[in-house]
Computed example of a mutant assay.
Amino acid sequence: MAFGSFSQEGRGAPMSEINMVPLIDVMLVLLIVFMITAPLLTHAVKIDLPTAASAANNEKPETVTLAVDEAGVLYWNDRRIEDAELATRLAEAAAKPVQPELHLRADRETRYQKLAEIMSAARQAGIQKMGFVTVPEQ
């Protein structure tokens, strides 16, 4: 927008450009008005919703503790079992209607190979939930 120039030509000619400042002011005022009134225009429909009461299912699944010491000896719920017996016990646990959670406790010195074999046997038996039990540091 050229409001003034140093040339003498067309000095008395009317300005042919549109002045945008008043239009912007009007738009800002309208924007503020709509921002204030829009939250007031929400309509709430009052309806009677049905209510239902139910008790929480507090039935917790059984937990099976499988412990492994540093020599690789297995303990099923604190009872010593043989390696060959592990697969049958895992299959029995997986066949229950409510499958128990398998908690695996291992000694610090237990070989990882033994733990991998136990996890593989649990997966093959169909155990869905398995967790590792650790002792927190003091």
Rank of each mutant, 00 (worst) to 15 (best):
A2T: 10
A2H: 13
F3L: 15
F3W: 09
F3E: 05
S5R: 06
S5G: 08
F6R: 11
S7P: 01
S7N: 08
E9I: 11
R11P: 01
A13Q: 14
P14S: 10
S16L: 13
I18D: 12
I18G: 15
I18C: 14
N19Y: 07
V21G: 07
P22R: 00
L28M: 02
V29I: 07
L30I: 08
L30D: 05
L30P: 04
L31N: 11
L31G: 12
I32H: 03
V33D: 00
V33P: 01
F34M: 07
M35K: 00
I36F: 07
I36S: 00
A38G: 08
A38K: 11
L40C: 06
L40M: 09
L40D: 00
L41V: 03
T42C: 04
H43E: 07
H43C: 01
A44N: 06
A44T: 11
V45T: 02
I47N: 12
I47W: 03
I47G: 11
L49H: 14
P50E: 09
A52G: 15
A52F: 06
A53M: 11
A55C: 02
N57K: 08
N57G: 03
E59P: 07
K60V: 08
K60D: 14
P61R: 12
E62S: 12
E62H: 10
V64A: 05
V64I: 11
V64S: 06
T65G: 01
A67Q: 01
A67M: 04
V68P: 02
V68H: 05
D69E: 03
A71E: 14
G72Q: 00
G72L: 04
V73F: 08
V73N: 09
V73I: 05
L74G: 02
N77S: 02
N77R: 00
D78L: 10
D78N: 15
R79F: 12
R79P: 09
R80D: 08
R80Y: 09
I81S: 00
A84P: 03
T88N: 11
T88W: 11
L90H: 04
E92K: 11
A93E: 13
A93F: 03
K96S: 06
Q99H: 06
Q99N: 06
P100S: 04
E101M: 14
H103K: 15
H103P: 11
R105C: 11
D107E: 05
D107F: 03
R108H: 13
R108Y: 05
E109M: 11
E109D: 12
T110R: 09
R111D: 14
R111W: 09
Q113Y: 04
K114P: 00
K114V: 12
K114N: 04
L115D: 01
A116D: 15
A116C: 08
E117Q: 10
I118F: 00
M119E: 11
S120F: 10
S120C: 10
A121W: 07
R123L: 10
Q124R: 12
Q124N: 15
A125F: 02
A125G: 03
G126Q: 03
I127N: 01
Q128L: 02
M130H: 04
F132L: 14
F132E: 10
V133G: 05
V133I: 07
T134N: 13
V135S: 08
E137S: 07
E137P: 02
Q138L: 15
Q138A: 15
